[in-house]
Design a protein around this nucleic acid. Structure first.
Lengths: 111, 111
DNA sequence: CGGCATCCCTTAGGATACTG
DNA sequence: CAGTATCCTAAGGGATGCCG
């Protein structure tokens, strides 16, 4: 199933997921559409520069969309694309690992 | 399924997966037990320092084991622990994403 | 063979102030 | 509100040489 041929092929994905805040950011967007300030608060203490950088990269790679609603004050929404949503199983697998890992850790503590 | 509560919890996993070479390195170990020089060749152009650093971190976190076979020349083998093997579904999910993503890319190119 | 030790450098990311 | 513009630093990682 997994073999050496995967390694090169998986590289574009690693580029998408790269960056300290990318995974937490994506987790936020799996919950739902988010505004810039909302993301900033929830991902605290991320800096606005970093948040912008990551959002731009993900947009460029077709993982999220940026929608501007004109008016004052400004209103911008970030949302996963279809391609972005398909990343969810990866996070689900991560989450599953963490849960089982915690379970085992607790078992050991109870000995 | 996935919600905000996952975000903190998933952090230890992100620490494990952190680093430019960690995922390619783990992919190598999913294929099988590997020696230092073997990893170095297959992960070329990784530097020996970086490889050592990553191996030490993964060892410390209980993801891999390091086995020294005394003798000249030295012989060292790195192998996934049980905990490490359980990461495989995450990589499988990544691999699945990449495959479907490529499929879609090809479809579009054929239009 | 399987590493350390060293030195160097790039760059992701932080802090802060300002703007359309 | 949603960013940009600057400046700065910490550290991950590269290159190289030596050693048990």
């Amino acid at each position: 199933m997994l073999d050496r041929s995967c390694i090169e092929a998986i590289d574009p994905l690693l580029e998408i997921l790269d960056g300290k805040w990318t995974l937490p950011l994506l987790l936020e967007l799996f919950v739902g559409t988010r505004r810039f300030g909302e993301l900033r608060r929830r991902l605290h203490p991320i800096s606005p520069k970093t948040l912008t950088d990551r959002l731009r990269v993900l947009e460029e790679k077709g993982i999220i969309t940026r929608t501007l609603y004109p008016g004052v004050p400004l209103h911008v929404e970030y949302e996963l694309t279809e391609r972005g949503w398909k990343l969810q199983p990866i996070f689900a697998a991560m989450w599953a690992w963490v849960q089982e890992d915690d379970l085992n850790a607790n078992k050991k503590n109870q000995l």
